[in-house]
Design a protein around this nucleic acid. Structure first.
Length: 501
RNA sequence: GGGACGUUAGCUCAGUCGGUAGAGCAGCGGACUUUUAAUCCGUUGGUCGCCAGUUCGAAUCUGGCACGUCCUACCA
């Protein structure tokens, strides 16, 4: 198999040609891409330290600074000019004049283009409108930009280009930068939370000989040296529980899962989850733990637990709702009685009337789940734990001692979307083997998403997995929630796209 | 997968009834030493997504294809 090289983009135009000519002139003059400029100050720090100082205070202090960044705005007025440069911390205005830099340097500046990377040394001052600026004494072009930036006021608006050329989106769009800064802080806050609770962060394989830990279609790949088929992982679950068998009683992993399924505003083929496992805990402990985790993350990242999502408000600081699937259905459809919702024929009738998808072989629990998904799931805007999942759709979860047909499992829904899934782990190896066998039968019957049997995982359980609780949280969806993003692609730097034609 | 819509200058967008392409920004030239999306004057820049068809004539009408956006269904 050969790999196609990235096609060379034949989209040269007049603007690029003119910039190439400028670069060519720079090469003749000397080093066109110098790397010896010493940047000593960040725009954000300068505004923080000197933004409130008066014009006279700044003149008296005579603060010399060296800043660097990309030029985004340029205003030339004959013998003096203003420019706005942007670095990782923000923007700062430069004042360049014949008087301060000399006519030759100022004339050179006039030929610099929006998008060029500049390095400037000078003295801080305030303009007569009160804007903190650098009166430049030395100005250097550090990197010539050959391609023009998008229109300076509207920026890049085309969604496709924002995704394909995220670097341009990041240059011009403050909201995009903010989203990904929040994403980074979310992950940092999660790590801090787990570290404080004495969890061990681990890395388990992403190339799996047997895909396990979830019901999903895997990506298939091939290992040449071993000449074997491998799968990109759909979930780390079975490896993490092996580690609990090994004595790492509190473990977590934050990384990518891959699922060979549809792409939508809520689904990307590779997505980030945190999965964590803690021995000697159960699913009820996990629900309390999750409330604390999400409230803390929101507080650390946003400074508040009250968040606005797509125009509606919710509070991650309050206890989350806890409902069974039946109760959730009744919340939005109080006309259904307990007896009706536990009657198999009634459920099938309702599902048929709703033209909902369901498996006619399902027992009451599976039918309740189908009805819940049809009638309630999308309405669960405020954080809600749904509990009592049927055993047939929960092959890795421990059965309830009182009701063996249901499991000690919950899913957390927020803004109508599943955000987390957790349960008391099934640690009975013989029960687990029987559940795997049932999955294999379903797979043989045509269920593409049914699980494979993992013999080594059974063997690990046979050594003894302590009573354990485990959970997965979708990081992308959590970031969507905290950044008020409508699409998962808005929180993934380089979302999956078809190749450019 | 199903449906709706979109693709015009580097970017943001107009484009009437089918009559041969427009603006702003950016660029280039000029004026301007406190601007804030600077302003003013002049000016370059187009395979109208691609391929067919209808027509004397297509950015515009028809069909197909590609890519995308939104809605919808499903896995998180």
């Amino acid at each position: 198999m050969t790999t196609e090289p990235t096609p060379i983009l034949h989209d040269e135009n007049q603007i690029i040609a003119e910039r190439r000519a400028k670069l060519s002139a720079l090469r003749k003059e000397g080093i066109a891409f110098p790397n010896d400029f010493e940047r000593k100050n960040l725009a954000g720090a300068l505004h923080a330290e000197f933004g409130e100082k008066s014009h006279d205070e700044l003149e008296a202090a005579h603060v010399t600074v060296s800043v660097a960044g990309r030029m985004l705005l340029k205003r030339v007025m004959g013998k003096a000019s203003f420019a706005t440069v942007q670095d990782m911390s923000g923007r700062i205005q430069l004042f360049i004049s014949n008087g301060d830099t000399g006519e030759e340097a100022h004339n050179a500046f006039k030929h610099h283009d929006l998008g060029d990377i500049l390095g400037a040394t000078g003295v801080l001052f305030k303009t007569k409108t009160g804007e903190l600026s650098v009166r430049v004494t030395q100005l250097r072009l550090l990197t010539k930009a050959l391609r023009p930036l998008p229109e300076k006021f509207h920026g890049l608006t085309d969604q496709e280009q924002k995704y394909r050329q995220r670097y341009v989106d990041l240059i011009t769009n403050e909201e995009t930068r903010k989203t990904f800064i929040i994403r980074s802080k979310v992950i940092q806050a999660i790590r801090e939370f787990f570290a404080r609770h004495d969890y061990l962060e681990v890395e388990t394989p992403m190339l799996h000989p047997i895909p396990g830990g979830a019901s999903a279609k895997p990506f298939i790949t091939h290992h040449n040296a071993l000449d074997m088929q491998m799968y990109l992982r759909i979930a780390p679950e079975l490896y993490l529980k092996r580690l609990v068998v090994g004595g790492f009683e509190k473990v977590f992993e934050i990384n990518r899962n891959f699922r060979n399924e549809g792409v939508s505003t809520r689904h990307n083929p590779e997505f980030t989850m945190i999965e964590f496992y803690e021995a000697y805990r159960d699913y009820k402990y996990l629900m309390d733990f999750t409330e604390k985790l999400l409230a803390e993350v929101a507080r650390k990242v946003l400074g508040t637990t009250v968040i606005s999502y797509q125009g509606r408000e919710l509070d991650l600081g309050k206890p989350f709702h806890r409902l069974t699937m039946v109760q959730a259905v009744q919340k939005y459809h109080p006309q259904f009685s307990d007896a009706q919702l536990n009657d198999r024929d009634f459920l099938i009738n309702e599902l048929q009337d709703l033209k909902a998808k369901y498996n006619p072989k399902d027992a009451v629990g599976g039918l309740q789940l189908s009805l819940f998904e049809e009638l309630a799931e999308h309405q669960l805007f405020e954080p809600t734990f749904i509990v009592d999942y049927p055993v047939e759709v929960s092959p890795l979860a421990r059965s309830s001692d009182a009701h063996p047909e249901i499991t000690e499992r919950f899913e957390l829904f927020v803004v109508g979307r599943e955000l987390a899934n957790g349960f008391s782990e099934l640690n009975d190896p013989e029960d687990q083997e029987a559940r795997f066998d049932a999955q294999v039968m379903a797979k043989d019957a045509g269920d593409e998403e049914a699980m494979f049997k993992d013999g080594d995982y059974i063997r690990a359980l046979e050594y003894g997995l302590p009573p354990t609780a485990g959970q997965g949280i979708g990081i992308d969806r959590l970031v969507m929630l905290l950044t008020d993003s409508a699409a998962i692609r808005d929180v993934i730097l380089f979302p999956h796209m078809r190749p450019e034609s």
